[in-house]
């Protein structure tokens, strides 16, 4: 039975955990088994954060590093941090928002060059770059960037959940204007990715 493993990586405060929970809840709505890991580091914000979502016949919350189906990176450096140590055919969605670590700015340095990083990883799959913050703002709030990313993942086609499952998960979590913003964000994200990969088949 195929399982689906994804890693969501970003910086504390970007809505990484919420994104993981939304996808998990959508998978539950699709009748699938899900486990998710949440690691709360030392401080509330600003450090690297990653969440793993595993769907299907799985036990623990940690994905084997050669079995990752999708990396959803909310920040370039954090995307590469994960990407460089997993199977090279993992699909990659990357939010372009650059957050300069203070370890860089403190030394009067600037953010590393993204194209150079891309050229240095041995990923065999295309890295979809998405301006999720800008799209989120268009949807009504930059805070909905995480849902833009989920929308893009939906269009990528490999998530074992569909648009209705995600919409239902959003309805459970938000009301009123916030719900509208998030549904809009999902739709904007969906329009960002057109090439579709094969869906990972996970049987309930």
């Amino acid at each position: 039975m195929k399982t689906f493993n994804m890693i969501i990586a970003g910086v504390g405060g970007q809505g990484v955990i919420t994104a993981g929970t939304l996808i998990s809840e959508a998978a539950i709505k699709a009748g699938l088994n899900v486990v998710m890991s949440e690691i709360h580091g030392l401080s509330q914000r600003g450090g690297s954060v990653s969440v793993e979502v595993r769907i299907g016949d799985v036990y623990g919350p940690i994905s084997p590093r050669r079995r990752v189906d999708l990396i959803m990176g909310f920040e370039p450096i954090e995307t590469f941090r994960v990407l460089q140590s997993v199977n090279t055919d993992a699909r990659v969605l990357m939010n372009k928002e650059k957050l300069t670590p203070i370890s860089v700015s403190m030394k009067d340095e600037e953010y590393p060059d993204i194209q150079k990083m891309i050229s240095m990883v041995s990923s065999s799959s295309k890295i979809y770059e998405i301006d999720a913050v800008d799209l989120g703002r268009k949807a009504g709030s930059f805070r909905s960037a995480n849902v833009v990313m989920i929308g893009a993942a939906l269009s990528l086609g490999i998530l074992p959940v569909n648009e209705k499952n995600i919409t239902d998960a959003l309805i459970d979590r938000f009301t009123g204007k916030l719900l509208d913003i998030n549904i809009g964000a999902m739709k904007l994200g969906m329009m960002e990715v057109s090439e579709t990969d094969e869906k990972v088949q996970v049987s309930p």
Partner: peptide, 18 residues
């Protein structure tokens, strides 16, 4: 084994919030 990352990425330890 999974690939061992070779990129020289700047660390991002947790920091005091803005």
């Amino acid at each position: 084994d999974a690939p061992k990352g070779k990129l020289d990425l700047p660390p991002r330890p947790p920091v005091l919030c803005p």
